[in-house]
């Protein structure tokens, strides 16, 4: 999630980041129609710029385009979540192997720092303070990215990035908070990183990521979705 920490280059970039964030954080709900004229009024840009932004988000799987219907926020389904989870597990487990093998002291420090921030937010969430929900999700992401950051492949990191954001949208929409169990898993993952314990990290990640689809199924939160 390129949460714009760097200045966006153009007006188009600004709108792209805003729309993207609005979709991931559930402010634009699944299947909501995105009409060019309405958006144009709201953002005061050309239709061409809007189309570019929308089509970029289509290629990221966050928006859907259908001939008769136009643009709409991508729908959600259990099937889609399962596919995204599987992909995230595949990419993250693979990346963790290369990252742990290559990671040096700088990388360790970045993992420790990222975990520290995450764990502070988890404490707040556990104490009932839900106002930090968005920051908590951002730090969760930063921690998982830090774990794999030394994997040595920009392509792998970029692909993981996109999948993570699609996964994150589900977590937000389904108000997923697994409490202390998830916090404990993060702590164990930190431990694995410092000990370079790859197999244990992979088992943990598979369980950690897979738990979201279990949670969804348990609580009957999502329709299965079409084939």
């Amino acid at each position: 999630m390129t949460i714009a920490l760097s200045l966006p280059d153009t007006v188009g970039d600004q709108i792209y980041h805003r729309l993207r964030s609005d979709i991931i954080f559930g402010r634009l709900e699944p299947e909501r129609k995105l009409r060019l004229e309405q958006l144009r009024g709201h953002y005061a840009v050309s239709v061409a710029t809007l189309r570019e932004v929308l089509l970029r988000l289509v290629s990221e799987g966050l928006i859907r385009f259908e001939t008769q219907k136009g643009f709409e926020v991508a729908p959600i389904s259990a099937r889609d979540l399962r596919e995204i989870s599987d992909m995230r597990i595949l990419l993250e487990c693979h990346a963790v192997e290369a990252s742990f093998a290559a990671g040096d002291i700088e990388w360790e420090a970045s993992v420790v720092a990222a975990h520290h921030k995450l764990s502070r937010m988890e404490e707040k969430m556990l104490a009932g303070d839900r106002s930090v929900s968005e920051i908590w999700k951002r730090y969760d992401r930063e921690f998982h990215v830090a774990l794999i950051a030394a994997c040595g492949s920009q392509e792998l990191l970029a692909t993981h990035d996109r999948i993570f954001d699609r996964f994150l949208r589900y977590q937000v929409l389904l108000v997923m908070f697994r409490g202390s169990v998830a916090a404990e898993e993060h702590h164990e993952l930190l431990d694995c990183a410092l000990k370079r314990d790859i197999p244990r990290a992979q088992v943990l990640l598979t369980r950690h990521i897979g738990a979201c689809i279990d949670y969804t199924v348990e609580h009957g939160l999502l329709a299965e979705g079409s084939r």
Partner: peptide, 8 residues
């Protein structure tokens, strides 16, 4: 069986 996998 996975559209996400095929597209990626």
């Amino acid at each position: 069986g996975s559209r996400v996998l095929m597209q990626t």
